[in-house]
Design a binder for these strands. Structure first.
Lengths: 356, 356
DNA sequence: CGAAATGAGTAAATCGATTTATCGTGCTTG
DNA sequence: CAAGCACGATAAATCGATTTACTCATTTCG
């Protein structure tokens, strides 16, 4: 086999030292840019490095160092556009600082979240970017506090007593959605969400409610929250819409506080044969690529993934490098993309004519 | 600060040894399950471990070991459902074997792909699961060969002279799509794809063509391939459809060989005001959650993510543990979900009536 | 001129484990 | 009774770097 040979041990710093005729310490100095090395020796070392194809072993290097150049990232899932892009951004930023990002998914389980974190602690990561399953008061954040780990919380958090937090300003975005809907004449609106995230959900609800009622004090706002997963939500929503049909009253618009809720709402519309936006309007929190190519194109709140990632990493590195001061809670503004899925309320023929 | 104290050094194996009144070697033995340890001492060690909250440092542990318990995974992106789920599955499987998965995204760049791989080589990972940007002949696979790394190639590959490969049987799936379309009477079909992946694209094209022509020898199959990115494809497609309208002939169905192509096709339909499936049918390779909740629901080929991940990991661990033998090329069967986006050809009123 | 400072380099300790070689015991066994 | 052999345990080497402490020349300067 041609590469049986290539498989053999990689050159170590000692191999380089030997070939260059200097000590390992000198090689280390040359490679880390210390200046007290004779020109001649530096050249010999560099030649040897080149010739042997030597590269520092990051594990061995980190062993001796005080702080390992590894950053952990924990997200509920990889496959959503939001978290996928988030991890990608975090990855780049970590690399730019000479760190390696080790990403793991908690799969929406708080137990797993803590397990992963414990493992990252074992790895003695320099810091962690945690997007908690639930919120900042979960077990993982508790573990980080108890163990004096360095970290930043993102996404489903508002603020924390110990860690910096960075998240989308979903309250403001929700208020904007409310204004758009109320402004178009909607007076009966359904909000769907996940109860788990407590504080953030409350912020979104409050933001929406305040803005809607300010514009239309007579508006009716229903809320359907599911505790944990998607399927319960589907059932809840089915019940809710069933009740509506019985009573002959139906919301004219739906605002979903999370991506999967938007999908569930759409599929319920479809099940009942409701046309969007003719029969009912829809806005979702969280944008996705497909939303602009389907019929109708779905209106959505776009989260500033890039900015969240950047500020999270900036805050994290500041702490890693010893930055002091009280934890900061950062909110990044969202963008609302109004698309075809929002129209005037059903039955409001005048408005529809005026628009068409 | 309450946790300033917690922040201090974690206990090492020596701390445990001291507290248990034995040597570090004994502690190591107890923890790795070696039996030649007195009951009494084992108990003392376990007590000390418990009391100190000791956990093995995986870095230090891997240093001394012959093989580091780290598996690298390289995918083009995290945010697609396919690769997102893939990484999640690989993560679980690696953990089940006591390994840590370090995932990285090549962002569809072959240069970056090789860089990441070099970094993983520096980490001396036990093995790599690589989903190449292009195909099995890219620079990353070359690097792995040249350096005698252990690895498995997945997804955009057919077979390789050195590495085991696992991918979806997209040729068979394409043939099935062809039969469905031709069977419904479509005689002018457009295939859109990315030229980059050469061999796999060819396999899909051939699979489709053979099956379509077997059923309908008079069928016309057009192909639009873009070289690299999505935007060029959009332009190509726009030109193609423009030409169609001029000549007054238009394909009655589109089969997209990759997810983003499906999105682009949809958005082109939308731009031209073509209704799907009334004006034109659509099937996409690669399924996504949204496809079943939109109007129309989009027909798609579902890739067996789980099976691919499982076989890839099985093959990888077999090689890591010294398994010999020629590389195996595995193809996993796909499932085709026919949905509303496929109907009879436009203009074929009879068929449409018969169906509705 | 002798003391102090600087420059260039190295041996050895260290990080936190695993593994090898070695060392006493106590028990068989010829 | 001496040699042989398990059995349990440990000291020390090792993995591949970084860093500390120290040596030996050479300069610089009072």
């Amino acid at each position: 086999m041609a590469h049986r040979q290539a498989q053999q041990r990689r050159p170590s710093i000692h191999d380089v030292a030997e070939r260059a005729g200097v000590s390992a310490a000198t090689v280390s100095k040359v490679l880390s840019g210390v200046v007290t090395v004779k020109q001649e020796n530096a050249r010999r070392v560099l030649d040897a490095v080149e010739h042997l194809g030597y590269r520092v072993d990051p594990l061995a290097s980190d062993m001796r160092r005080a702080r390992r150049r590894i950053i952990g990232a924990i997200v509920p899932e990889f496959e959503s556009e939001f978290f996928g892009q988030m991890v990608t951004r975090l990855e780049s930023l970590a690399e730019e600082h000479g760190y390696t990002l080790v990403a793991a998914s908690s799969r929406e389980s708080e137990a797993r979240e803590k397990e992963i974190l414990a493992r990252m602690h074992d790895w003695r990561v320099a810091g962690v970017v945690l997007a908690p399953v639930r919120n900042e008061h979960g077990p993982a954040a508790g573990f980080m506090k108890a163990n004096g780990m360095t970290g930043v919380l993102i996404d489903r958090v508002l603020s924390d007593a110990v860690f910096d937090t960075v998240s989308a300003d979903s309250a403001a975005a929700s208020a904007q959605v409310a204004r758009e809907l109320a402004g178009r004449g909607h007076r009966h609106i359904l909000i769907v969400g996940l109860g788990e995230q407590a504080a953030t959900v409350r912020a979104r609800l409050d933001g929406f409610r305040a803005a809607a009622l300010a514009l239309a004090p007579d508006a009716r706002i229903d809320v359907v929250l599911a505790e944990s997963d998607v399927e319960p939500l589907r059932a809840r929503l089915r019940d809710y819409f069933g009740g509506c049909e019985e009573k002959g009253e139906r919301p004219t618009a739906v605002y979903s506080l999370f991506l999967r809720g938007t999908l569930v709402a759409l599929s319920e519309f479809r099940r009942r044969g409701w046309r969007c936006p003719d029969d009912i309007s829809l806005v979702g929190f969280d944008d996705a690529e497909w939303m602009q190519v389907t019929w109708p194109a779905i209106a959505a709140v776009v989260q500033p993934v890039g900015r969240i990632a950047e500020h999270a990493m900036a805050a994290l590195f500041a702490r890693i490098e010893g930055g002091e001061g009280p934890p900061a809670a950062r909110l990044e503004p969202c963008r609302l993309l109004m698309r075809d899925s929002v129209g005037p309320p059903a039955g409001n023929a005048a408005a529809r004519e005026g628009r068409g």
